[in-house]
Simulated scan of single mutants.
Amino acid sequence: MTHLTVQRSTLGNLQTNLRSMADLQTKMSSGKNVNAPSDDPAAASDMLRLRSDQRTASQFGRNATDAEAWLTTVDSALTTSLAALRRARDLTVQGGDAALGAQSREALAAEIDGVKAQLLSQANTTYLGRTVFAGTSNAGYAFDQTTYTFTGTVAGTTPPVERTVGDAVTVRVDADGAAVFGEGTTSVFALLDDIAAQLRAGGDPTGSLDELDAHKDALLTQVASVGARHNQVLTAQSTLADRQLALTTQLSAIEDVDLASIILDLQAQEVAYKGALGATAKVLQPTLLDYLR
């Protein structure tokens, strides 16, 4: 073995030690095991998959948050409407008293009109500029203020507003206004107009109680439906939070360094590098005269 061969071998080992030490320093300074795909192609592939899953879960989470806001708005409107309709029923029962004078009947009729206006306001509730009882309609309102025409009907149905909150999990976040309040002449608004007119005419409005109860039952059905969907969204949010935590843990296990282990490895590599420097110095030390001697 010639002196040149030993020299080249020693310099090669020195470069190898220096490269290893540089890699360890990069990992320690970045805190990551994989700084480039070439560091660990299999780990890099897993990291890309996990990050993709994280982005998907984050989008589902945003959808679920939006769905919760929609359903909370719908639930609030339905609860307020139910209370108003119960008040209208009480007023209708009072109006059945034959001993009431014209002034008392007018007062009851005026309050009925106020209840109707409140119900119309709730029926036209919006969230972020979108009506929550008119499906995908962009009319800006669900019910006309005078004719009570429903704007959400498309080809005989009300297209639902939906949010995807998980893999193959879609939740409706609005409510069908026609199913809740009726529409046109069969709406609860038209019914309250009739009750107010009967009161002003001196008639007995209690004949409309069955229809009021039917509308109340429709409201109760929708409240139950919205509650079930709201619960589904809350469950999805909890599941997504657990999923995000699991993905973060898995990603950390792959890419985050064990700092204590890296420090020990780096110290060992520094010792090896210093040894390589010493060996290289000895190899390069002989002069031409030493070689000829």
Rank of each mutant, 00 (worst) to 15 (best):
S81P: 02
D75E: 14
V161D: 08
S38P: 05
D144Y: 12
V173S: 05
Q267Y: 00
A190I: 00
D167N: 14
F60P: 07
Q267G: 08
M21F: 14
A260D: 15
A107K: 07
L71C: 06
T248E: 13
A22Y: 12
S187Q: 02
R105L: 04
Q237K: 12
A142G: 15
A272N: 11
D174N: 13
P286C: 02
R87N: 08
L240N: 04
N138M: 07
D23G: 03
G61Q: 14
L120P: 05
S45I: 02
G166W: 09
Q269P: 10
D90M: 01
L4T: 10
K27V: 04
M47N: 03
V283L: 03
G61N: 12
A179M: 11
A236L: 08
A228L: 00
R130G: 01
S238H: 03
G61D: 09
L212R: 10
T72R: 10
L284Q: 13
A178N: 14
L264A: 15
A228T: 01
D213K: 07
G96D: 11
V223E: 15
L209P: 06
T248W: 00
A196W: 01
Q94S: 14
G140P: 07
L11A: 13
T239V: 04
Y127M: 02
V93T: 11
T73K: 07
I263H: 06
T125E: 04
Q15Y: 09
R86F: 00
L240P: 05
